[in-house]
């Protein structure tokens, strides 16, 4: 529902007792209806700084709430509850509880970057959405999103070997997200590939998946990347006041 059409009264804030008697008077049912307060009583002032410490969130404080991002948003066109402008605002002033109500849709950003081009203040809303998803995850508010699993599977492989082999990426991604490898569309795709792709290419692809090739002399680069990633990881956890990552910090 678009934000301006939302009712000020939320269903869960309506309290009604089926059986209630006060001072001998029966006020059961709608006679006892009352609405819980929706007053904001404090801000979580750390929230903006924390999100700004994560990649993509650096310029969140620039936002002046014009709404260009939401208007440009691909996902918003399909789901009016997906409202980057609103989430940036909640983060900036620290209305954490309010933001958490939307935690299950924030990760749905498809990174089309239309908002990035629309934003007059160069907030980089797409980056902020990434940082927000990341923040929700690190704080333990959400499970790792499918796209995060994919990113991890993808980058782990690149870090390890300096190369990418799609078959392996897909297998691992499906395994991590608990999906069956035997999916109709995937089977169909493979059948068609076998049918239509040149034999030479198919052979090369098969060889890749069997031999698991590496970039030659990759070891040094791998170590450097791992070190950098660990350093960044520790930095982010520290900014969010979380325990250091596993292993010695």
């Amino acid at each position: 529902m678009p934000i301006h059409e939302k009712s000020l009264i939320r269903q869960e804030n309506l309290i009604e007792h089926e059986k209630l008697e006060i001072d001998g008077i029966d006020v059961s049912g709608h006679w006892s209806t009352f609405i819980q307060t929706r007053v904001v009583t404090d801000y979580n002032e750390d929230m903006e700084t924390e999100v700004a410490a994560l990649p993509g969130g650096e310029h969140i404080h620039r936002c002046w709430q014009c709404g260009s991002c939401t208007n440009a948003c691909t996902v918003n066109a399909i789901n009016p509850d997906f409202n980057p402008r609103y989430w940036i605002y909640l983060t900036r002033i620290g209305m954490e509880a309010e933001l958490l109500r939307d935690k299950d849709i924030i990760w749905q950003c498809i990174s089309c970057n239309k908002c990035t081009y629309a934003c007059p203040r160069d907030v980089n809303p797409e980056g902020v959405m990434k940082a927000l998803s990341h923040w929700l995850e690190l704080k333990g508010h959400t499970e790792k999103s499918p796209s995060m699993h994919f990113d991890e599977v993808f980058s782990e492989q690149v870090f390890q070997t300096g190369k990418i082999e799609e078959g392996r990426t897909i297998r691992r991604f499906f395994a991590r997200t608990g999906q069956e490898l035997n999916q109709d569309w995937l089977v169909e795709m493979i059948i068609r590939m076998v049918r239509h792709l040149p034999v030479k290419l198919l052979f090369a692809m098969g060889l890749q998946s069997v031999l698991k090739p590496r970039t030659r002399g990759w070891g040094k680069a791998r170590d450097a990347i791992h070190e950098y990633v660990a350093e960044k990881d520790a930095e982010h956890r520290k900014a969010l006041k979380l325990d250091p990552p596993h292993g010695p910090a």
Binding site: I3, L8, V39, T41, Q65, Y86, L90, E98
Partner: peptide
């Protein structure tokens, strides 16, 4: 009232 989120505020 924070008019952008349509919420009353009571802040110290």
């Amino acid at each position: 009232e924070d008019t952008l989120v349509k919420r009353p505020i009571t802040i110290p």
